[in-house]
Structure formats: C-alpha cells, structure tokens
Design a protein around this nucleic acid. Structure first.
Lengths: 166, 166
DNA sequence: TACTTTGTTCAGTATTGACAAAACATATTA
DNA sequence: TAATATGTTTTGTCAATACTGAACAAAGTA
C-alpha cells in the first residue's frame, strides 16, 4: 500500500500554481487547486491550506473567494464543525475550459470584429487578413462547444464501461 | 471614401495590447500587432512604430524580436531603403492559436498526468476527478488539430467562392 | 576616414500585483 | 458579557518585469 508523499504533493501544487499563473489567475489560486487535486481527503480546511501551502490566512481567504466566484471550488460545511472546508467542484474542468480556451476564442473574435469595423468597407491586405482571423475564431466559437458535447457523449459510454467491469 | 482614423487605430492597438497581455505576452507586443493589423500600408518601419505607439526604440527592437521568434511577424527589407519594415506573417493566426489554445490544452493534460502519477494506483475521489480531466484534455489534444483542418478545408471553398464572384 | 543612419544591448526606473501581517468583524461557547 | 474561534478586509512591502534612455555596435555614405 503506497502512501502519497506530502512533499511531492506540495511540489505538484507549486507546478499547478505556475500553470494557472500563465492563464491569468494568481499563483496562489493554482496552488490551492493543485493541492485539492491530490489531497486526502479531497476537502481541506483553511487551516490545512495555510499550513501545507505556508501561506497567510488572508491570502487563502481572498483566493478561495476568487476561486468560488470562478466556479472552480466550493465551500462545504459539516454539522457540528466550526470551520468550513473547500473542495473542487465536480464540474471544475468545464469552468477551466470555459475560462481559458473559450474565453480566448471569444476575445480574439471580438478583436477581429473591432479591427474590421475600423477599416470600413475598404478591401486591403489588412482587411483580408482580419477577415480570415474573424473567420477562424467564429468557426471555433461555434464548433468548440460541439466538440465538448461530443466528448460528453463518448464519456457517458466510458462510464458505462466502467460500471460493467466492476 | 472613408479614411481610417489614426486615433481610433491607436486605441485599437491599445486594446490588442491588453488582450495579448492576458495571454502572457508583454503589452507592447500586442500593441505592435494591433497597429500592424490596421496600419496602412501593412508594413511599418521601426520609426513609424516608435512614433505611433510613443515607445522607445529599445522597446520596439526587443519586442519585434520576440514577435519574430514567436512567428507572429516578419522583418522585410526593400532594395535601396536603409531601414527595415515589419509586417504580420500570413500564418500569424495559426501561431496565435498554437501558442494560446493548443499550448493550454497540452499543459493541462500534462498536469493531469503528473497528478495521477502522484496518487498511484489508489482510486479515490481525486483520482476519479483527475482521470476525467486527463480524459477531456487528451480528447481535445487529439481533436483540436482535426477541427482546424476542417476549417482549412471549408476555407478553401470560401476562397474559391470569392474568386468566382470577381 | 569621418559622419550618418539604423538597430541592439544594457543599466536604471517605474509600475504592477501578489502576498504577509495585522486590524477588524462575526459568531459561538462559557 | 467575556473569551475564543473563525474568517474577512486592508495596509504596506516586496519582487517581477516592462519600459525608457543612453551607450554601444554595425554598416552604409560622403
């Protein structure tokens, strides 16, 4: 029976921190997510978070609120327990994808529109370029959700397979 | 005949700057891209860039090099002209997509793998979650290029339509 | 060879933003 | 009401980094 190494888990939390920093969230947000991804149990109190991540209460408090607003984690409370716990939401990856990928697609589609609006009716090398950009991102904006739906369907099958193999 | 407003174009460059900042590039990189998207002519000298963006030579020099490395712009030189020009590459949007969307997909797929590696064989609430995450991002990593190829095919058709309508 | 034009590199500055620490607020138990 | 536990908000500090400005390099012109 292999027990998970806490120090390795902390390293992992740091890595996730770096990764999420690249997506625009504060590093601490990624650290919390990273830890919640591998912590046992999957729900952790604020005290546990401050200890394992060696961060201040204030930082954890602010960042957990941010993550809750983004729909990535949720606060849970147990009866007869003073403090709350945080855990990943079951649909966190949907939100991650929506915030990152879908958000970027929409942003660039809007930029292309604005740029074309500036150029007006004139057809220049630039307008040709911008039209192509608008074209791609509009396409992605339509097709990307369809792609995710396709995954969900295939995923349903996977789950059934898992059930059968029990 | 509507002439493009320079001040509006500068505003646009600033907006693109903000947008690209969110994707991890320096703001100045986005400003340059934004200006090149609407400037007339589509190729601009370093002096023109320093003037319109009110930025220092050094900043433009450093940032154009960065953009060239990323494959987003290219340096062009005209015969009998001392200075060089910069312009968008025709395949810039492919690089934008690759850097942003594809990169993010790969990054998160790798994170899920690392997390699962940490948990080992144990099946917990977390491992179930991570497996799902790995599942989605692996799916996206495979299907996203296919999606782009599909666009390119449909795009070929568009171009032919344009030719016919001339 | 001097001079000008063009572009790069580097040192210093300024700005941004994440974080810690402490003050503050709220609620629970005694 | 006092005392304790829990969580939030705010203020200040520090670090990262984009940017400016100046020194420097290279290459073309007189």
């Amino acid at each position: 029976m292999k027990t998970i190494s806490v120090s390795k888990a902390k390293e992992f939390a740091e890595e996730v921190g770096i990764a999420f920093e690249q997506t625009g969230l504060p590093r601490m947000a990624g650290r919390i997510l990273g830890w919640l991804l591998v912590s046992d149990p999957p729900h952790q109190s604020m005290e546990q978070l401050t200890n394992t991540l060696t961060a201040s209460k204030g930082s954890i408090s602010t960042t957990t609120r941010l993550l809750i607003q983004h729909g990535l984690i949720e606060r849970i409370s147990l009866p007869a327990v003073r403090h709350d716990y945080f855990r990943l939401r079951s649909d966190t990856w949907q939100h991650m994808i929506g915030r990152g990928l879908t958000g970027e697609i929409i942003m660039f589609r809007q930029l292309a529109e604005r740029g074309l609006g500036l150029l007006g009716e004139k057809t220049t090398a630039n307008s040709k370029w911008l039209k192509e950009m608008l074209n791609v991102y509009t396409f992605l904006e339509q097709e990307f959700p369809a792609l995710l739906e396709r995954w969900e369907k295939e995923h349903q099958k996977d789950l059934q397979t898992v059930k059968q193999s029990r």
